[in-house]
Every structure is written in structure tokens, then in C-alpha cells.
Design a protein around this nucleic acid. Sequence first.
DNA 1: TCACATGGGTTACTATAGGAGAGTTTCAGC
DNA 2: GCTGAAACTCTCCTATAGTAACCCATGTGA
Lengths: 121, 121
Amino acid sequence: MVEWDPYDRNCPTRKVLDRIGDRWTVLVVGTLAGGPLRFSELAARIDGISQKMLTQTLRGLEQDGLVTRTVTAAVPVRVDYELTTAGRSLQEPLKALEDWAKEHMASILDARDRFSVEAPR
Amino acid sequence: MVEWDPYDRNCPTRKVLDRIGDRWTVLVVGTLAGGPLRFSELAARIDGISQKMLTQTLRGLEQDGLVTRTVTAAVPVRVDYELTTAGRSLQEPLKALEDWAKEHMASILDARDRFSVEAPR
DNA sequence: TCACATGGGTTACTATAGGAGAGTTTCAGC
DNA sequence: GCTGAAACTCTCCTATAGTAACCCATGTGA
């Protein structure tokens, strides 16, 4: 395996980190964890995502081979998205992040409160 | 523990996900993993980061109680940054992400190449 | 004493990302 | 021929990320 180095500006891992660190990507992958869903179902479950961002995020994931896009010729057209094997393997690290976020929420909110009081910048 | 739900737009976990999913945050925390460093050392190791973004990222991490900022009155001033306990606990999920990125780089780059050929959008 | 170097930032500006919302396509059924 | 629903797609506009240049306090050598 080549030695990837995210600390180098030109290393492609930078782009991959951008993709998987993206807010919407985390949420889309997490939502698809339960099985395939269609566009409108994703939009409904991920509160606050715009159609544009959902389309963009899905295209990015599709491009990276992390989700598949299946069009069913019906009326109206039906489009399903599903995680690939690689996509499912991403669930684990993302879940770790999600769990960390949940676990440390309280202390972080606390720290934010204190910070605004002190902060003798 | 309260039930946090990142899929709700108003849940504060959203903000936390934004912070820890941030490209620079991942790299700064990863760089600080080896022990405390001063501002200029961080800037040198994280290729491509600007002073402004480094300052901003560090302020954010400090605000969330993930790093400490220590000013030593010397000439010129010396400022050290170090991970807190909470900050160190973040290393693990971030490392998982980094590892995932390294492991799947090849197949992702491959998928990207194929995508531009097909893609009968 | 005065220009210069050094570390750790700000400031001012520009480029890109993202949001709101209207418009588009496709095709069965009325 | 018109309607309606799903899944986009486009336009406009604001907010955030990013870049480059400047600032400030202090010690040093000429």
C-alpha cells in the first residue's frame, strides 16, 4: 500500500477526508444504514437538508462508489439509494464519531458556556 | 443521558458534528496527538493551513474544551496548545476515520475514474 | 537610535458553499 | 390535452471559508 499522508496538501486523502467529514455525508450514510431508501424518504428523515444538497451529497457518494443509484421506470419514476460494501464499511467509523458526539455533548456545551464568561483574549 | 438526535436540525449534536467533521479540526487534533505544540509548529506540520484558519480552528477547539492554550511570557511570546482529556478521547474516532480513508483510497480513486466514463446522467 | 527579525496573531477582501424556492421532465390515468 | 407526483435542476442571494497583507511587542546588531 502506498503511504498516504493527510498532512500533505496534495495527498488525495485530503479530498476523502473532506467527503466523509462532510456534515450531510455523515447523516446520509447514517440514514441509509437501515437499508435502501428513495430520494424523498431520505429528504424526509434528514431534517433541514435541501434538495440541492441531498442530490449533491448522493452524487458525491455515488461517484466514490459508496452508494448505488437505482432508477425504476414507473410513474412517477422511483429512485432508490443503497450503501455499497465500501459504504457499509464506512458506517463503523462514522458511528464512532456519532457516539463520541453524543457522549461528549454535555461537557462541550458546558465548556462553551464557560468560555464566553472567561476568554480574556 | 438526554437522547440526542443528529437527524433533528435543532439538535446541538449537529454543531458538534460540524466541528469534529471539519477538515482542519481533524488534522489539528491528529497533529496534537503526539503532545503539545506551539502555534508555529502546528502551522508548519499541517501543510496548506493559513494562520487565520489555524487560529480559528484552535479557538473553536479551545471553546469546546478540547485543547488548552498556554501563553508563556517570553520574547517573542510563546503559545502552546495541548489536547485535554476530552480532546484525547476524540483521537480514537478520528483515527478510525483516517484509517478508513487510507484503506479505501485506492478503490475510491478507482470509482471516481470509472464514474466520469459512465455517468449517463 | 533605528532598522530588522520573530511569533502569533488581525484585517480586508475574494471565492466558494449552501439555502430558498420556482421551474423542468416524464408518463399514466382521466 | 391536462393533471399530478417524484426527482431533480436552475437561478438568485447570503454566509462562510480561504488568501494575502498588515500589525504589534520586544530583543538584537550596526
